[in-house]
Design a protein around this nucleic acid. Structure first.
Lengths: 196, 196
DNA sequence: CTCACTGTTGACTTATTGTCAATAGCGTGG
DNA sequence: CCACGCTATTGACAATAAGTCAACAGTGAG
């Protein structure tokens, strides 16, 4: 579709192109339907080239999910200067924004890529860990004791938030501010409920 | 491994046997590695027979997940006679028990079967809906108004509980009573936080 | 006991992953 | 400017697993 003649690119550039095409395909189709053959055809290269770069289908999936994940983590990165609760508010606001701007990507990350092979699962798992760390930091700075139960609670609250975002931000027209406020309240409620 | 001669069973019985073997395989391996060939070999029948009964690999997966799901929903069915919060306590206690008695099954249900085809996902999705309904009923009986936000909140709390059960009940030695109490508190906290 | 019904089989087709020696762009040194 | 070598790229091939289907063979009914 691009060229009918063989074009030779620098490895980094070709890799970027292939991963970008993969991420783009997540917008309207789940990860598991991202087959080597389809992507090869879209990119106008042979299937063999994908194995040259990614080794296996799972290797490709891993890099695609990694790129999508980093895009999300980047768009929702906390602003260090803000006070804890303001930082949480800021992060959640941008999270809702990201979810609504990139519905397909978000949904594929939190739902589609859940199963499959452990390598891929681990990539999205790391995103949850990172997000949990962000929220834990907020409440530790507010003076809560660093207990195992608090960590489990906020780790689980991340799963709570993912579900709420799918239900609230993707399938209803609820105003973003209301969703953000809902997430803030529940986070505080969960954290408080383990602090006795 | 069972018989080397062809044995002809009544359809219901054969179906039961095949599904039971499939559910048993979930104990120590994820759903997606449950291949037609493996199950056929374990059951001592030909691959063709599995297609005769289930039509497709997804059809098999659907019935296996359905059986595993119903086993869980059954083991954790609410006792109607109890008062709302007692009923919640009872259900959660049996849920923790089930999770620890059937680690593999539970994990496969809430993690492994998450992706794959929409048919299979829908089956486990219905389990979440059912569990959400159970919790929603508790708080409605306690007099809370039936708002969309409450439903989303408790629907999301089910995801919260799944995560907490994986983290708390499967990967730590935390006493069951403590996990149950934790789940009760967070459920109340989440419900209260939307009731203003 | 035999006969029809149907549970069961195995060989075949199709689709997709993965392998690898051969090919052909593209920068570089002469 | 132009061979020439490095390597990005290809296409043909093998391996695996999903589906298909006509033929086969238990089992109960008459």
């Amino acid at each position: 579709m691009d060229q009918d003649r063989r074009t030779r690119l620098a490895p980094d550039e070709r890799r970027r192109q292939l991963v970008a095409l993969g991420v783009a395909s997540l917008v309207d189709s789940p990860l598991e339907s991202l087959t080597i053959e389809q992507l090869a055809k879209r990119a106008g290269v042979s299937r063999g080239l994908l194995f040259y770069y990614f080794g296996s289908k799972q290797g490709l999936h891993r890099e695609v999910v990694l790129a999508a994940r980093d895009g999300m983590l980047n768009a929702t990165r906390p602003v260090p200067d803000l006070a804890p609760l303001d930082r949480l508010h800021s992060t959640l606001t941008r999270t809702v924004q990201f979810v609504r701007d990139h519905r397909g990507t978000f949904y594929s990350l939190v739902r589609g890529a859940a199963s499959g092979d452990p390598e891929v699962r681990e990539v999205v798992e790391q995103a949850r860990v990172e997000q949990a760390e962000r929220v834990i930091a907020v409440f530790l700075e507010l003076g809560m004791p660093d207990t195992e139960l608090l960590r489990i609670a906020l780790r689980s609250w991340v799963a709570f938030a993912e579900e709420a975002l799918v239900e609230g931000a993707l399938t209803t027209a609820m105003p973003s501010e209301q969703i953000v406020e809902f997430l803030e309240r529940t986070a505080r409620a969960v954290a408080n409920s383990v602090a006795e």
